[in-house]
């Protein structure tokens, strides 16, 4: 486990760098008070707001306060959701909507969408890739190639709109967006899953072609195993490492893709929160959302590493230290 501990340490440092960058960059682009109250607000109003938001303290003090809060799981208070602009002593609970609450409220929806998108894409991509590798140069192979190329090159935003027009507007099968029942997730998951679907299918296909030419496949055939088991267990498990690598990459892309897809479908996830925070110049929420996304990415990378060791018994966590 020392490897994992060290990795966690690196991740924490990475997060601190991200946080610091967002914090200072956010302050550098302008005075949040002017952004909030507009150009014509009076100096007294601005001064009052800065006081209430704690923006009059020295920047470094604000920064240490923020980082200190982070350590205790406190992401600060939204500038715009709730009533942070009011004097804190007016409220028993300190005033303002905690960013942590906002982020935690949105995170499950993003995870849900990403899980459905990736799960669906992965299942379909593996089947597509395997079929293509089992019948190379057949019409199935060509179909898989065309489909995966198309889904990799398509722009998610555009795909989302096309899906809405086709399935919600013309066919009326599914809602145009929103969140609620399980059918709400289908279209956004399709839009979000298209890219990983294509990428994973392509990688699966080529990795499977490699694996199917290996001696252990001939040996497995020779002992009389059914072909489906040879493909789905023997070859696929060995093709797993490139597939997991690309899936990890795609997961990171998925998080960025979620920002667009959530916006198109009005999906109440972290991406949507991030866009709103950006539009509202709500620095604490923006920081919190970016932090959440960065944490997701780091956790995903760690999971990918752990999956490697499962797929390739020769690599153990301790041996990867070198």
């Amino acid at each position: 486990m020392p490897y994992l501990v060290r990795r966690a340490g690196h991740s924490a440092i990475m997060l601190l760098v991200v946080v610091s960058f967002v914090f200072f960059a956010g302050r550098m682009i302008g005075d949040p008070a002017i952004v909030m109250l507009g150009a014509s607000a009076s100096d007294t109003a601005l001064e009052q707001l800065r006081n209430n938001l704690g923006l009059n303290d020295p920047l470094l003090m604000q920064y240490f306060r923020y980082v200190g809060g982070l350590v205790q799981g406190d992401l600060g208070v939204s500038f715009r959701y709730g009533f942070a602009q009011m004097p804190a002593e007016r409220f028993m609970d300190g005033g303002g909507t905690p960013v942590m609450g906002l982020v935690l409220a949105r995170l499950p929806q993003t995870l849900y969408l990403a899980a459905v998108a990736l799960g669906g894409a992965l299942a379909l991509a593996l089947v597509m890739g395997c079929l293509a590798a089992m019948y190379p140069r057949s019409w199935i192979d060509h179909l898989v190639n065309v489909l995966s190329l198309a889904s990799v090159s398509v722009v998610q935003f555009w795909l989302g709109l096309v899906l809405i027009v086709l399935f919600a507007v013309h066919l009326g099968w599914l809602p145009t967006g929103g969140y609620g029942s399980w059918y709400h997730v289908i279209l956004p998951a399709l839009a979000l899953g298209a890219r990983p679907l294509g990428r994973v299918a392509q990688v699966t296909r080529s990795a499977m072609l490699d694996e199917m030419a290996r001696p252990y496949v001939a040996a497995a055939r020779a002992k009389g195993l059914p072909e489906h088991r040879i493909v789905s267990v023997h070859a696929l498990k060995n093709a797993g490492i490139p597939v997991v690598t690309i899936t990890g990459d795609e997961l990171v892309q998925l998080v960025t893709g979620a920002i667009l897809v959530e916006t198109v479908f009005g999906w109440p996830g972290i991406g949507h929160l991030l866009v709103e925070a950006l539009n509202n110049r709500d620095l604490p929420v923006l920081q919190g959302a970016i932090l959440a996304v960065a944490t997701l990415v780091i956790v995903v990378n760690l999971l990918v590493d752990i999956t490697y060791t499962y797929l390739n018994p020769k690599v153990s966590l301790s041996s990867r230290e070198n």
């Binding site: 001696p215 252990y216 023997h234 498990k237 060995n238 018994p313």
Partner: peptide
């Protein structure tokens, strides 16, 4: 059975 038994065995099972 095959010449290179190590190659003929699945490394991940």
């Amino acid at each position: 059975i095959f010449q290179d038994a190590l190659a003929a065995l699945n490394p991940s099972l």
